[in-house]
């Protein structure tokens, strides 16, 4: 009976990283929401935020760095942009973790919005510098709104899957 338990624990330990890679890949799949007028939500950001807040050891910084780098390479853009955006978000979330844990869901959602806003501003600034001119801000704002709107669904799925795994949340202990 030891083998299934071990396999299960191995699966549980790699699941967050797999979820993050899948989120990066989904960002590349041509979803074309509302005939392409609505951008794909930043799914990796939701995964990073939730794990950074509720289970930071499950998704360590090197894994997030690697996922960001993979996204840069798949996008064909300059290297370092997405790792910096994701790692800054990780830094901000882990820094405010003690404040957010145990708070009402709406407060956490608001915190998600603030961190996402900072991340999108960093993305806009980096891309503007790399392009040699100020880029329009509204594509980032648009993606901010869509990602923010999808956060509750992501959070619901996150807690549902963790409950199925039998994980007891640290802040509920």
């Amino acid at each position: 009976m030891a083998e299934p338990t071990r396999a299960r624990s191995v699966l549980a330990s790699v699941l967050p990283a797999l979820a993050l890679v899948l989120a990066v890949l989904l960002l590349l799949v041509p979803l074309r929401l509302f005939q392409g007028y609505v951008p794909t939500p930043l799914l990796p950001f939701i995964v990073i935020f939730l794990y950074a807040l509720y289970d930071p050891d499950a998704l360590p910084a090197p894994v997030i760095f690697a996922a960001g780098l993979l996204q840069d390479l798949l996008y064909g853009g300059p290297l370092g942009v997405w790792p910096s955006v994701y790692l800054l978000s990780l830094y901000l979330v882990t820094g405010q973790r003690t404040y957010f844990l145990g708070r009402a869901r709406d407060v956490v959602w608001l915190g998600f919005g603030v961190v996402l806003l900072v991340a999108m501003l960093l993305l806009w600034a980096e891309m503007s510098i790399l392009s040699g001119g100020w880029l329009p801000l509204w594509p980032a704002v648009y993606q901010f709104v869509i990602t923010g709107a999808l956060y509750p669904v992501g959070a619901y799925l996150f807690f549902y899957l963790r409950a199925r795994q039998g994980v007891r949340e640290e802040w509920q202990v």
Binding site: I64, L79, T98, E170
Partner: peptide, 26 residues
């Protein structure tokens, strides 16, 4: 929880590496 927070040197180091890569990409 605040007493149990681990130091975040790893994140800071990788963040610095990322910013260096962005500058290098220029």
């Amino acid at each position: 929880l605040s007493r149990r927070e681990a130091p975040r040197y790893g994140t800071i180091f990788l963040l610095a590496v990322s910013f260096f890569m962005v500058v290098f990409s220029l």
